[in-house]
Each structure stands twice: as structure tokens, then as C-alpha cells.
Design a protein around this nucleic acid. Structure first.
Lengths: 236, 236
DNA sequence: GAGTGGTCTAGACCACGAA
DNA sequence: TCGTGGTCTAGACCACTCC
């Protein structure tokens, strides 16, 4: 692991274990430099990483401060799948409804940027949070990239398997959100009523080399859907 | 403006004007270095910025590639308010329902991290997109930070005013999303029916120095709510 | 003006991808 | 093996904040 990542992890742990709150000041750059015995650029790189993760903010001429939102019970939309693992505060479980090798739908092929002849894994499952239905999920994984899957993996975490067992790295994703009404079968799966509100999220996941490998369509139970996004303004 | 920002802008313009598509390769680092006559670190910093903005992705040992999603008609959730200005593809307008100086509600004071005695601007408006109702918005601005507002500004863009006229810089924001059902008055404002689906987004906006200055509550018309988020995986 | 974060450089060396 | 992007350094200089 790289120096700046290790340092970032150390600082993050420090913030968590010392229960620092929003606005608390971290040591100045020079202190951090000598403490970790690295150059200024490296420390700055660590802090930039933490800034992108939404853990600190840096103010020129003033200092480095902790960023920490106060609300509990919100799921981070960007840490939801693949990214991050701090969902430990929630009890997550999955029920696999179907796992099969198929030819993708036109929609899935389009989003994965592949031919309809190429084999994909189709996975359909219900995910539970704290004993309640959280969402209904349909995913399409390219078999050329993820050659193996089984229901045990699908019931646990496909992304964990992809990164730990296959050694693949998730790079970026495009997410499309829409709000609508549940149809009859969705409602039945989620334990809700037809025409109840539904949050639908379609995501195309890419590896670090830019290859799309997973297209997923999720319909969330609106009763359990409290999401959180930390945004940074890079556009100034 | 800084070198790395200027270079980033140049590269972004190049991508747009040459209509480069997802996966198209940019010149190699060395070429860019000599072309812009700067050091390697500066070019890398420019490209990192473009990566965070979701415009390129970099693959070690391979090259720098354009990132561009294909779907049209989606509003970027992170460029929505304050951030970015590429909503030009949409026709936006606002109708101001109320603009007044008040003492904040307990909820607003809590989110802005101020006392309930402190004066705030309360702004309520309906926003339209391509002639349709997009959302109903309630915002609370700290008067100590934004001392002046009028209905002309509110009908145009408060964030534009804040940055251009007041010279303030927006740093980061915390967004909370929830899905629910419209109540009667919301439905009336949006031209929908009671109990129709609603996407509610609460956002706390901070200046670059960490001060919260705006708390806003938005209820979106589900018929017009197609959102897009570009995510990067910093958690690997 | 002192303190603090940010930019920029030149160059050595490292790590990954593709052929 | 070579091309290419990434890390890391030491140090000069700049820009903002706060007293």
C-alpha cells in the first residue's frame, strides 16, 4: 500500500477513535510532515484523498478540519455498492431469487456496451436492512470479466468477491435515479402496495481500466430509503 | 487563475469541441507537458481535477481516456445548485412564492448550526424546467453571510449572486435524500395529486471555510426527476 | 507580520499494461 | 521490454487568515 494511503488511513482512524467532530482542527502540515516523516506533497496528497472521501476540509491560511455530518440512519449512496464498507452500522442480508447465465436484454447490452450474444450472469435478489426489505435488485455481470458466481457469493457480497477473490478493482460508476410508482410484482416483493412510491437507481459499474462489468437496476423500498451524499465543489 | 485549472479547462474544452467520446484516448503525459510547458506534477494535477469532475479516467500503463455517459435528459444531482453551470441544455425558471427575513425554525437552526435568534432569509419558490414544474424549494440563508437578497435575484440564481456579486466560494455540501408521498399543498404547487411519489432532498451548503450558509429543502416533481450521479471509487 | 495551506518545479524511481 | 502513468522528494515561492 502506498504511503499517502497509509497516512490517510491513520488520520481517518485517529479521527474516529478520538471521536473528533465537525470543525475540530487537525495538527498543522509541518507537524504531520515530521510525525509521519514524509515530504509536504505526500501529506497534502493524503489530505486531498480524505477531502474527496468527505472526511476533512482544508482552509488555506487557517488549518485542516474534520468534516462529519450529524444525521444517523442514512445510507451513503456512493458507498452503497462496491464502494466503502461502512455499512456495518446496518444489518444487511440478501435473498437470491435467481442466478443464471443468459444473453443480456437489449437494455443491459447497451449499458454494458457489449453485443447481445455475449454471456452474462443475471442475478435477481431482495436485500434486507435491519430485517426490513430494502430493495429489489437485478444485476447483469459480464462473464468474460466475472467468470464465476454462485448463490453463496450472491447472498453475501458480489463486490467483495470481485475485489478479494478475483483481484479486480472497481474504478467509477454512472448512476441514474428516477422516482416512480411500484408495479404489482415489485410491491409484492417489497411488501408494499401497488402505486406506492419507488426510487429506481440504474448503475453502470466500470473497472479502473474503464471496462463496464456490471449493470444493475435497483428498486428501493421508500420506507427504508434514506440516502446521504457528500458533495465537493470542484467547479469553482 | 491557477495553471492546473487553466490547463484542465483547456483540456475539457478540447474534449467538448472535438466531440470526443467515452474511451477516446488523450495525448500522453509527456506530450501534454511540453504542449503546456509545465512540469509533470502540474499536468497530473489538472488530470486529477478532471477525473474528480468525471470527465476523464486515467489508467496506469495505458493512457488517459475520456469519460462521457450517453444518456440525455438527466440532471446532475451534484451540479444542481451552486455547483457547475451546464444546465444550459435545460430551460430553467423560478417563481418566487415568498422572500422574507425571519427567525429560523428549530430544524433550520440545527442544520445551519446557529441560534434560533439569528436572522435568516427564508425563500420559497417553484422551479420550472422546460415549462414543467420541477420542484418546490424552501431555503434558509444566514443573513450574517448573505446580507442582501431580492426577488429578482431569487428568480434568477441565488448561487450565481453569492459567488459573483458577494465573492463567496461554495466548498462542500451534505445532501439527504428521501422518497415519500406528496401532501395536498405540495401537490397543488407541483400540479400533481396528493399521495403521488415525491423525492425530497435536504441540503446543507458550506463555504470553503466550512461555514454552513444555506439549508434547503426541495420536493421534486417525480415526472421530471431524472438524476445523474458520477461516482469515483476512492475506497480501494 | 506570523502562521498556515497551496502551487509549481526537476528529477529519481516505481508499477502497471500491452505486445 | 518498453511505453505510460503514479509516487515521492526538497525546496522556492505564493495566497489566504487572523491577530
Amino acid at each position: 500500500m502506498l504511503k499517502y494511503q497509509l497516512i490517510a488511513n491513520d488520520i481517518e482512524k485517529y479521527i474516529v477513535t478520538h471521536e473528533l467532530q465537525q470543525g475540530d482542527k487537525l495538527p498543522v502540515l509541518e507537524t504531520l510532515m515530521s510525525q509521519f516523516a514524509v515530504s509536504k506533497s505526500t501529506i497534502i496528497k493524503s489530505l486531498d484523498l480524505l477531502e474527496r472521501k468527505g472526511i476533512v476540509y482544508q482552509v488555506r491560511g487557517s488549518g485542516i478540519f474534520v468534516r462529519r455530518h450529524r444525521r444517523k440512519g442514512y445510507i451513503s449512496l456512493l458507498s452503497n455498492q462496491g464502494f466503502k464498507k461502512d455499512l456495518e452500522e446496518f444489518q444487511l442480508a440478501s435473498e437470491v431469487l435467481m442466478l443464471d447465465t443468459i444473453k443480456p436484454s437489449e437494455e443491459a447490452a447497451l449499458n454494458l456496451n457489449i453485443e447481445q450474444e455475449e454471456d452474462v450472469f443475471y442475478l435477481k435478489r431482495i436485500r434486507y436492512i435491519n430485517g426490513q426489505t430494502l430493495c429489489l435488485e437485478e444485476s447483469y455481470y459480464r462473464k468474460t470479466i466475472i467468470p464465476y458466481l454462485n448463490t453463496e457469493i450472491a447472498a453475501d457480497s458480489v463486490f467483495k468477491f470481485i475485489s478479494e477473490a478475483l483481484g479486480l478493482k472497481v474504478g467509477f460508476s454512472d448512476m441514474y435515479l428516477q422516482v416512480g410508482k411500484l408495479n404489482k410484482t415489485e410491491a409484492a416483493h417489497l411488501g408494499l402496495k401497488q402505486d406506492d412510491p419507488a426510487l429506481r437507481v440504474e448503475t453502470v459499474f466500470h473497472l479502473t481500466n474503464g471496462q463496464p462489468f456490471d449493470f444493475s437496476k435497483i428498486t428501493y423500498n421508500y420506507m427504508q430509503s434514506q440516502f446521504f451524499i457528500q458533495a465537493n465543489n470542484y467547479y469553482g
